[in-house]
Write a protein that binds this DNA or RNA. Sequence first.
DNA 1: AATGAGTGCTTCGAATTCCGAAGCGCGGTC
DNA 2: GACCGCGCTTCGGAATTCGAAGCACTCATT
Lengths: 117, 117
Amino acid sequence: MNESPTPMPGRPVRGSTTGRSLMAALDLFGRRWTLRIIWELGNEPLGFRLLQRRCDGMSSSVLQQRLTELQEARLAEVLRDGNYTLTPLGHDAREALCPVIEWSRRWAADLAANDVA
Amino acid sequence: MNESPTPMPGRPVRGSTTGRSLMAALDLFGRRWTLRIIWELGNEPLGFRLLQRRCDGMSSSVLQQRLTELQEARLAEVLRDGNYTLTPLGHDAREALCPVIEWSRRWAADLAANDVA
DNA sequence: AATGAGTGCTTCGAATTCCGAAGCGCGGTC
DNA sequence: GACCGCGCTTCGGAATTCGAAGCACTCATT
């Protein structure tokens, strides 16, 4: 029942009264599972339960919350067949995430090289 | 007391037993304030309290937690003068975040154009 | 029509995470 | 000494997340 509002540019955001779009984005993406959901939905449209499985069985209540947020933020939408998918804006967001993916590879490589554990 | 382990490639991560580097990155970045801290530290090295102010006065306990995680993940380190800064790897991560920043601008523009509220 | 399986989604108590005010010990500086 | 700001910790309460259970619905199959 207690849901903090969906972060949106132009309105105050958790941790920032300015509502700058960057801060709104960082708040939105900084919620657990949000990045993962965008990533999984970017691969293909998915139904609720299948999406949940792709996200390693994340809790359905939070998934529902995140999907609502993503729809409000115009990143996701429901297809006529009932599946969830990314809007064009959502796909842009996912592509903006690609450098992060590439970085994570370098990250793994660096840690493997410099670490002992 | 109860701290979930710092996400690292190669070890099991919250919500994924594979330890794939991407999932580790998504878990790390999907924690509140983490993205923001990387962003603020990328601008310039900062001391603890100043960094806290830059992050809209986020709670010191969580800031301490995040800084520890970022250090363990080799994204951040402490300078000899005591300030926090990003490692080269951390700077790479921040640059990987730049497209997200650009995207957030398009996001704001799109919402302003298509929305009424 | 009945059964069963799968779906999207909700509920709710418990576990985890986050918050924030307060305070500690420390090094400077007046 | 008496400040002051620093990095950092503590801890009780608030907010978020979890996950098992269940509801209403659709679609086959029988």
